[in-house]
């Protein structure tokens, strides 16, 4: 089956959705509409993999249907109860999967190196992206995302702004529990773990807004732990940086301790910090390694109804 065919088939399956949306551009099928270098490469291999597997699975299904239909009781197949072994068949049923797995393994390994989060072959070799890479430090708290731009000394909460066409290099850590960072249309998942630092790299193809979220269960606030990713032109990005740097709030180590307290980001209190104390990510990693915890209060687990009412009231009163 051709690659186009697969995509077409998948799209056809999703017809009810397209109908309800009328002409809306975004189908919500994020994985089938990659908008970045990494996600495109991933998608490419995904289609190869599916195609090859279908080459085996579909004939197998057909064979099964054929066998049960043709040899049904009262059917036309001849009945030969003593037939229970054949070296030829054995060789084929071991051989074909073996060869297939061989091919798939080759593709899989190749793909793994191409989208390796730490040093993706797809970005470093193809040179598809130009310009100096942008560094972003990501800290996942319970349950918000903090994006720090160490070069610009600014930070943004629950909103990631990046220039399109430029490689963005992330360093990620978490304050308390494990999260999983993903922007489905741009890049796949990478674990964000307390006391550890992981990396990820992406390049956005074009300007646009993309959804990002945490994929790993991290507690009561997980479902709201999503963020908006805005890919903008380089000029727009520069303007955004300038504007943000003018913001009054600053983030210090001490301030971060307060910020990192458990908070259900139901109303996406998006904020920016005009200045960030340098080395915050490393500082957090070190603190967590030496035993710092931001504990979850009982009220946020056992009796959430009351807690959420209270938070709702606080938000209205202007606190966060």
């Amino acid at each position: 089956m051709s690659k186009r065919g697969i995509k077409g088939a998948l799209k056809a399956l999703c017809a009810p959705l397209l109908l309800t949306l009328g002409g809306c551009a975004k189908s919500g099928l994020f994985l089938l509409e990659p908008q970045g270098v990494i996600s495109r490469v991933t998608y490419h291999y995904f289609r190869l993999d599916v195609g090859i597997m279908l080459l085996i699975i579909i004939p197998t299904a057909l064979l099964a249907i054929f066998a049960m239909w043709r040899y049904r009781k009262g059917g036309r197949g001849d009945y030969r109860p003593e037939w229970s072994h054949s070296y030829l068949i054995e060789a084929v049923v071991w051989g074909i999967p073996l060869i297939t797995v061989g091919v798939l393994s080759y593709l899989s390994i190749k793909a793994i190196y191409e989208v390796n989060p730490y040093n993706p072959g797809a970005i470093s070799s193809k040179g598809s992206a130009s310009g100096k890479p942008l560094d972003v430090d990501v800290i996942a708290t319970d349950w918000r995302w903090l994006f720090i731009y160490p070069g610009q000394k600014i930070a943004s909460v629950d909103r990631l702004v990046i220039p399109a066409g430029v490689p963005v290099r992330f360093r990620l850590t978490s304050t308390s529990v494990v999260n999983d960072f993903i922007i489905p249309q741009l890049v796949g998942m990478i674990d964000v773990m307390p006391g550890m630092r992981t990396k990820q790299t992406l390049v956005a193809d074009r300007v646009g807004r993309y959804v990002g979220y945490s994929a790993d269960y991290s507690g009561a606030g997980l479902s709201w732990m999503n963020f908006e990713t805005k890919a903008v032109t380089r000029a727009q990005f520069a303007r955004w940086v300038k504007k943000t740097q003018a913001a009054p709030q600053a983030l210090t180590y001490a301030g971060f301790n307060r910020f990192a307290k458990p908070y259900l980001a139901v109303y996406h209190h998006r904020m920016v910090f005009g200045h960030v104390q340098s080395g915050l990510l490393d500082h957090v990693v070190e603190e967590v390694m030496s035993g710092k915890v931001w504990r979850t209060p009982m009220a946020m687990t056992e009796n959430m109804v009351r807690y959420m009412k209270k938070q709702q009231a606080n938000v209205k009163a202007g606190e966060y």
């Binding site: 099964a64 066998a67 049960m68 049904r72 009781k73 068949i89 999967p97 797995v101 899989s108 390994i109």
Partner: peptide, 28 residues
């Protein structure tokens, strides 16, 4: 990734053996 895919081989063999059990049988 590779070891995981390897499991598909013996599993596939099972699938084919069932199919060939029905083959030339009298399926009720």
């Amino acid at each position: 990734s590779v070891t995981t895919m390897l499991v598909g081989i013996p599993t596939g063999v099972k699938v084919f053996n069932w199919i060939f059990t029905m083959y030339r049988g009298r399926v009720r």
